[in-house]
Write a protein that binds this DNA or RNA. Sequence first.
DNA 1: ACGTTTGCCGCATACGTTTGCTTAATTTCT
DNA 2: AGAAATTAAGCAAACGTATGCGGCAAACGT
Lengths: 333, 333
Amino acid sequence: MDVTEPVTLKSLASELGLNVSTVSRIINAEPGTEAKWASPQTIRRVRELAGARGYARNPHAASLRTSRSDLVGVIVPRLQDYVLATIYEGIDAAAEACGRMTVVANSLDDPTRQRLRTEALLARRVDGLIFGDASLDSPYLDELAARGVPLTLVSRRRSGHVSVTCDDVAGGRLAASHLLSTGRQRFAVIAGAQYASTTVDRAGGFLEMLEEHGVGGSDVDIHYAGFDAPAGQAAIAEILAAHARPEAVFAVNDFAAIGAIGALQALGISVPDDIAVVGYNDTPIAEAVNLTTVRSPMVEMGRLSFEKLLSLLDNRGAESELLAPELIVRSTA
Amino acid sequence: MDVTEPVTLKSLASELGLNVSTVSRIINAEPGTEAKWASPQTIRRVRELAGARGYARNPHAASLRTSRSDLVGVIVPRLQDYVLATIYEGIDAAAEACGRMTVVANSLDDPTRQRLRTEALLARRVDGLIFGDASLDSPYLDELAARGVPLTLVSRRRSGHVSVTCDDVAGGRLAASHLLSTGRQRFAVIAGAQYASTTVDRAGGFLEMLEEHGVGGSDVDIHYAGFDAPAGQAAIAEILAAHARPEAVFAVNDFAAIGAIGALQALGISVPDDIAVVGYNDTPIAEAVNLTTVRSPMVEMGRLSFEKLLSLLDNRGAESELLAPELIVRSTA
DNA sequence: ACGTTTGCCGCATACGTTTGCTTAATTTCT
DNA sequence: AGAAATTAAGCAAACGTATGCGGCAAACGT
């Protein structure tokens, strides 16, 4: 189409009668340091021409030279999951704010796929990685860290790595204490996958609080399902098949909670009169169906996990962080 | 950490006593053509060493040389939207299958942001772009195309561009004809943004079918809202404030439909007995709440939009495609 | 026997940046 | 006034890959 030849440092330089290096330094100088490299009027001339010609640095050439891509890879279980999509949005916003770009991939919580996609990102020379799918089981992340790959975790923690998570134990406790305060005594938990710290911590905090109030044993029925609506539906079937019908259900995920509510209503069981339901995350859908839930700061987690990674990349070190959850009482519990 | 020096074509070549070019050709040869470049045993030696040393092409260097990045940019309104996340998944799967990578960005349906993010992707030298946020208003896409940027559209169409969409007019007709068949006579439509072809086509098809059955005028009440649950809630408030209460509501989006259902139930209005509700897309949440909806082939749309782009990149041309929707009858209509 | 094809491979250059080192002119210091 | 320091640039070498072209054998054809 247009055969207009590319505008490069060289083309700018030759048009200005300058050397490439001078132009490069002027364009790349941190604001304030330009004066170190050229006279004010040269700086002006360069900037003007660059603007006029619409110069844009060739990132491939730059990366080749500097061996930094200004790219960070993000691995999530699945972007279809609203929670992870939102966390990713936080990450991407933070990256955008400092001129970097993110590349995201789904692992589907499959170790093989996680490894595959990660290696693909590394082959593309990302500077670092953020994992939203850390598993308590798999040692792959440890291996990566040992290889010297800069990485942080988000949403799920794993010991030995910098992570930014919601204080899920506290979140579980919030849910429990609310349900106890409404007089419920028999409980069921719809948990997610056992390899996820979110499952373990939320359910753990919940049980912990119950025990502190003398509730336990056969009065609490825990089911490991998935993180989506169908999983919630299925879990309800199992729960109701058990001996004692619970008075309240804690789902570690809003979508599972909504699936559960759907299943209950289909059976003519009233929520919250017969069975109360509490979810987790406070996604918009929770508000839409008036679900009582525990809010987790998703965007903030994403943002922070990126900043921590940046910190690692700059050799400034970083510490894990635990963000506070908040109970949002609506009409299902 | 490990100061192990990078494994490059050069390092492989020197270790093998070969020239870089030979190694390059062997490694990059299309399967089957290797024999053109070297003797069988040389090929074996190269491949073995490359494997042993874990050679991975430096994509920056390659891109610099070839001026192709094997990267495609994807712009969507918002990844938090399940529909777009799923479409993106289809795109990414297709890209992965042919060794390319995708970079995604949210435009939030804001023209300024769309332009900003697109230019950022172009600055990163993506080979082409897929837009999931095409607007019927904004001429930006036309401008891009005029600049010679290869692009395709997905989910939303715009004349003059290659797009892969659901046949939304047909989808709207399906919804209408189902509601008519259940005897409903007064309707409301919860539409999305007017600049989106999905809104226009779905609502348009719906109205078209109603008119063919002699329904129109004050018997159909159309509300332009958004694509999420809160928008559905808000729309219900407006709709019920109007003179005649409808017997059925068609929401052009499942999430809006669910918001609507939530709002109706909160008012003690029974679905579907008092008011029937039909959604669009058949997201998992629809199944969970037993929503009658129109299924659109999201993953397939994504996949195809990528293939079309690939086709354009290879100068093989491409045609727009319209995929068939399917009515999924559940219990809300 | 001599020219031609074929198989196998090396040479060299270019892609666009970044950055350590130099240089030439000008200013400042003593 | 002469030495030293500063200013304002230029030179050149990488970074790792892809690719047109050339070369040198050995095999082939007549």
